Computed example of a mutant assay.
Amino acid sequence: FLLPVVEKLIAYNQETIKQQDRPVLSKDIQVVILSPSKNLSRQTYRVCSRLLSPLDYNMRCFLWGDAKMKDDVETFKRCTRGGGNILISHPEALKERLEYCKDNKGCSITFDKKHFTLIIDEADVVLRTKTRKLAELLVQLPEATSIGLYGATCTSSPETFDFIHEKMGDVVHLEEQDVKWDDNFDDRDLANGELPTPKTLVSAEMLQKICPRDGTKRCVMIRDAVNTQLNLSNRFMWVKADDRLSILVHLIKQHATKKHFIFFNTVESLAYVGAILEHMGDGAAGVLMGFNIYQVHGELKEHQKVSRFQNFIDDDHGVLLCTDSTIAFGIDIRNVDYVIHYDLPLQPRIYIHRVGRTARM
Results as ranks from 00 to 15, higher is better:
Gly83Glu: 09
Lys105Glu: 14
Pro36Arg: 07
Pro36Ser: 07
Gly84His: 11
Thr80Ser: 12
Met59Lys: 07
Glu96Cys: 05
Asp21Leu: 03
Leu34Pro: 12
Arg78Glu: 13
Gln30Ile: 05
Arg46Phe: 05
Asp28Asn: 13
Cys61Met: 06
Arg50Cys: 00
Leu98Asp: 01
Lys70Met: 02
Pro54Ala: 12
Ser108Asn: 14
Val73Pro: 01
Ser26Asp: 07
Thr44Arg: 10
Lys18Tyr: 06
Leu40Arg: 07
Leu98Val: 09
Leu25Ala: 11
Met69Val: 06
Ser89Thr: 01
Lys70Trp: 03
Ser49Leu: 07
Asp21His: 11
Asp71Gly: 01
Cys48Ala: 14
Glu96Trp: 08
His90Thr: 02
Leu87Asn: 03
Ser26Thr: 07
Ser35Asp: 00
Cys107Ala: 10
Val24Cys: 15
Pro23Val: 12
Val24Ile: 15
Pro23Arg: 08
Ile88Phe: 01
Lys27Glu: 09
Lys105Ala: 14
Cys61Tyr: 05
Tyr57Gln: 02
Glu74Thr: 12
Arg42Asn: 14
Arg50Asp: 02
Pro23Cys: 12
Met59Tyr: 08
Lys38Gly: 05
Glu92Ile: 05
Lys27Val: 11
Ser37Pro: 06
Asp103Asn: 13
Gly106Ser: 10
Gly65His: 02
Ile17Glu: 14
Gln43Lys: 07
Arg46Ala: 08
Ser89Glu: 09
Leu51Gln: 09
Tyr45Thr: 00
Asp72Arg: 04
Cys101Trp: 12
Gln19Gly: 00
Cys48Arg: 06
Asn104Trp: 01
Thr80Glu: 13
Phe62Tyr: 04
Gly106Pro: 12
Lys70Val: 04
Asp56Thr: 08
Leu25Glu: 15
Trp64Arg: 10
Gln20Leu: 11
Lys27Cys: 09
Gly84Leu: 14
Gln30Thr: 02
Ser26Glu: 04
Thr75Ala: 05
Cys48Ile: 10
Arg97His: 00
Ser53Asn: 14
Asp28Lys: 14
Gln20Arg: 12
Leu94Glu: 03
Val47Ser: 04
Met69Arg: 15
Met59Gln: 02
Gly106Glu: 10
Arg42Asp: 04
Gly82His: 06
Gly82Thr: 07
Trp64Gly: 11
Cys48Asp: 06
Asn39Ile: 15
Asn104Ala: 08
Ile88Ala: 02
Ala93Glu: 11
Arg22Val: 05
Asp56Gly: 04
Ser49Cys: 09
Gly65Ile: 10
Lys27Ala: 09
Gly83Pro: 04
Leu63Gly: 02
Glu96Leu: 03
Ala67His: 05
Gly65Tyr: 04
Lys105Trp: 12
Val31Met: 15
Glu74Arg: 14
Gly84Pro: 09
Arg78Thr: 06
Ser89Arg: 09
Gln19Trp: 10
Asp21Ser: 03
Lys105Arg: 14
Ser37Trp: 06
Lys102Asn: 09
Arg60Glu: 15
Gln19Leu: 10
Ala67Pro: 00
Pro54Asn: 12
Ser49Tyr: 03
Pro36Asp: 02
Asn104His: 15
Cys61Pro: 01
Phe62Cys: 06
Cys48Gly: 05
Val24Phe: 10
Asp103Thr: 15
His90Gly: 03
Leu34Cys: 12
Lys18Gln: 04
Ser49His: 07
Asp28Ser: 13
Val32Gly: 00
Ser53Leu: 05
Asn39Thr: 15
Thr75Glu: 07
Lys105Phe: 13
Pro23Ile: 11
Leu87Val: 08
Leu55Asp: 08
Leu63Asn: 01
Asp66Thr: 01
Val47Glu: 15
Arg22Cys: 13
Gln20Asn: 11
Ile17Trp: 04
